[in-house]
Write a protein that binds this DNA or RNA. Structure first.
Lengths: 343, 343
DNA sequence: ATGAAAGCGCTAACAT
DNA sequence: ATGTTAGCGCTTTCAT
């Protein structure tokens, strides 16, 4: 292992100068700097993160906590976060909580002291625990708000209203007037928001009817379970909680001879890559998830690098508070699971 | 932050005793141990990994390097590795190389010194670079061998022969006699092995005919691209390089009115969760990928914890060398994409 | 502009 | 069985 001492010896300076050259180059003469950097290069010196972390209180590592890394939504998010963290010289530790709040809490506890910050994606923690975590750690929330008054926890969310309007407008223009929303688990934070956004979007069209089913697990099995009930009401178009639910609906319908989009149009949410895997490929509403992950990392690193007392300054500045919350507008991607209703 | 000093003060012992209580409990009197552990509990003490790493040369972190975390194969692998690492008190840093060998090399370089070991999954490195990396770091290879003579790099692979035989036997028993294998990229390490295993399995049936197409990208697009050519030869059953390719074939065939399994049977590889997403769901051959990830972590930690000189002892013991290489037998999971050929 | 030295939290000799 | 202490590699005052 190459250390500062090796570099110092090689370039004929003290270890302090080596450190300075790397951390604050302007405080070192140009001549010395060149010599040191050359030695760094020659020796392939890599500062030891553990040592740096010990001294400076920073570890150069952040954590991303997700409910299920196998879910395409979170793997896309992880991909973006990972790339962004790497680019900025941070390591990314991934924690999969297997959808369990207790595991999530335990892991935050265990990993918290060893890292510079946490990204909590679709946290399953109850509100009070979330607020407590947000207060105790440097963290960024994805797909969830800290509902505490005056909370300064940075947040990245989807603008559900934009997404819902895009989906509803698309179906309306195709000529559908009887819609059905197949929702996710009633306890899910996104389910409440998404459902509300869809109801509001529908309400802006006086001649649109909306039914709603909910309580299905947010995966393909949930869609399969919903499939028969979803056809009972005679809706012309179905909007699913997410792409996996949509694929479940599609699979079960295919078994029973119901054709998409001939018999019923189908729209998914999140626009994950699985939307392109099915036949027909799925029309879906979603933001760029990788970008989503990148944004979360950016926000977190801003937080980490913020000088002490920045929070107080923020609290005073209402504009800055807005900066903390990024609400990303999703796009509608039309594929062939939606079409005009049969006459 | 709670340190050993806080725990020591609280329990009225020295910091050394605190450390001992945690590292080697048997070297501490039972009475003291209880007192220290109580203090640890009360204060919520968490040993600082950076400090421990600095002292002992261990960081408590391992890295998993994958070509693409969004690929369901690697996200399942990651899930297993993550769970296993966490269980044993290790952090897991995930690195996504976006399928690029240069990124992979650079990341191994950057991350190597800061961690205790690396799991290289489906490495895209050329043989010589891989051998060099394997020699220079504590690492475990997944889905790839270090071809160096006498290499002691632990390896986890799929037993392709078992998988191929299972798939071919299944199709044979259904009555198919004309088969087609749609292979992946010609340069891919798995493609060569899989293709060979399939040819050998087919050869054990005198009345089986096998065609082969290859060079397709290992994703749904690759499958779509292969779809038309795959029908040209008139094969009764198609075996795809992996599930994504199979889904691509399926999607394109559905567009053109070709029905699975009525017109052609279809088998995927890897048995990822996407195999269950399609209609019809995919018959697929694969090992339990989470277990695969767990095995890799186990092997790596054994390596990390191995005392100095263990390598020499290993080299002397031919049985132990076998232990280094785990070849996992996959299972065939029959779903409805395979059926007897129409008469 | 540069160097000497303290110390981050921990573990492992060494001493008692 | 327990305490004292050196030192891992680094950053950061404080001197010079």
């Amino acid at each position: 292992m190459v250390t500062v001492h090796d570099v110092a010896a090689r370039s004929g300076v003290s270890i302090a100068t080596v450190s300075r050259t790397l951390r604050s180059p302007h405080r070192v003469s140009e001549e010395t700097r060149d010599r040191v950097l050359a030695a760094v290069q020659d020796l392939g010196y890599q500062p030891n993160r553990a040592a740096r972390g010990l001294r400076g209180g920073r570890t150069g590592v952040i954590a991303l906590v997700v409910p299920d890394i196998e879910n395409p939504y979170f793997s896309a998010l992880t991909k973006g976060a990972q790339a962004s963290a790497r680019e900025r010289g941070y390591g990314l530790v991934v924690v999969d909580t297997t959808e369990r709040a207790d595991v999530e809490a335990a892991e935050i506890q265990a990993v918290g002291p060893q890292i510079d910050g946490i990204i909590l994606a679709s946290s399953r923690l109850p509100d009070d625990q979330l607020a407590q975590t947000a207060a105790a750690t440097t963290c960024v929330l994805v797909n969830r708000y800290d509902t505490t008054d005056g909370s300064l926890t940075p947040t990245v969310t989807i603008d559900e209203a934009v997404g819902a309007h895009a989906a509803i407008a698309h179906l309306y223009e195709l000529g559908h007037r009887r819609l059905l929303y197949v929702g996710g688990p009633d306890r899910a934070w996104s389910q409440a928001r998404r459902s509300k956004a869809i109801r509001e979007a529908v309400a802006s069209y006086p001649d649109l009817a909306l039914e709603e089913l909910s309580g299905f697990s947010p995966d393909a099995q949930g869609g399969r379970n919903a499939a028969d009930a979803a056809r009972a009401g005679g809706a012309q178009a179905v909007i699913a909680y997410n792409d996996l639910v949509a694929l479940g609906l599609l699979a079960r319908w295919s078994e029973t001879g119901i054709r998409v989009p001939d018999d019923v149009s189908l729209v998914g949410f999140d626009n994950t890559y699985v939307a392109e895997l099915s036949f027909p490929p799925l029309t879906s509403v979603g933001a760029d998830l990788r970008e989503f992950g990148e944004t979360a990392v950016t926000l977190l690193l801003e937080r980490i690098d913020a000088p002490e007392g920045a929070a107080e300054r923020l609290r005073a500045d209402p504009d800055a508070v807005e900066q903390l919350h990024r609400e990303v507008p999703p796009r509608l991607v039309v594929r062939s699971s939606t079409a005009a209703p049969a006459r």
